[in-house]
Amino acid sequence: MTALSAGDRLARRGGTHVVGDALAMARRNVLRLLRAPDQVMFTLISPIMFTLLFRYVFGGAIGGLHGLDYVTYLIPGIAVQTAIFSAGTTGFALADDIKKGFINRLRSLPMARSAVLTGRVTADSLNNLIQIVILVLVGVAVGFRPQSIPGLILGILLLLLFALSASFVFALVGMSVSSVEAVNAATFPVVFPLTFASSAFVPTQTMPSWLRGFADHQPVSVIINAVRSLVLGDISPSVREALFAGQSTVSLVLQSVAWTAGLILVFGALSVRKYRRLGS
């Protein structure tokens, strides 16, 4: 049994393995994703339902759009909501790996400590990209007309960056709770108000002032407004005043990047710390 022989040591490649190990883990996660395409579709069902619901059922009654087409207003909001829900996959997958003992195997290997998390969010970013592209296509089919294609592409990149930050938040949740179901239970009460008390579906002007104060300044609205402003391209000052409190696209994008970077730094650090201390 030559394969079992312990005496004959194998050479290991030296150097740092931060990138190589992350890619190995990302590859594993993408392979899993490709084998369960139904999962990608499943997480897309609710945003597509929301698109149809708001486009055809509520859309006609929603005002305050200053002549904008509602579908074009709506899709950036749904896209950010999709990015958040899709980032939940990060938490589910980590909780599942922990529960099945797979993480313990990884932690006993001489691999880079960061690779479990970085490989996870890399694969999840790919998943997010697929979801956002499908959603945009569905949107176009029901009347979504981005006014600026470079704006749309920048908007998608901004969404991916935001989804990455959300992935780190869910990573921390996934490693902190005991089961996949608990990830769901823990995130819903946070995600729900953040996406609905926002500019995702309706302009915030009609909300009571206490709610509007929250809805205008919370990070989800900031991201939605930045993506929306990118997609709408040139709009009249009065529409910009009504929808974005007069803020320019550049200002909205910078605020979004600041929020996103902050979330990645804080929750990235907390997630890595949690990963190191798993089990104790």
Partner: peptide, 20 residues
């Protein structure tokens, strides 16, 4: 502690790669 959604071969190759 194996990944059920990978083949046996992929499981071993992943561990080999992570062992550098």
């Amino acid at each position: 502690a194996i990944d059920e959604n990978l083949t046996g071969e992929e499981n071993l190759a992943l561990v080999g790669r992570l062992n550098h």
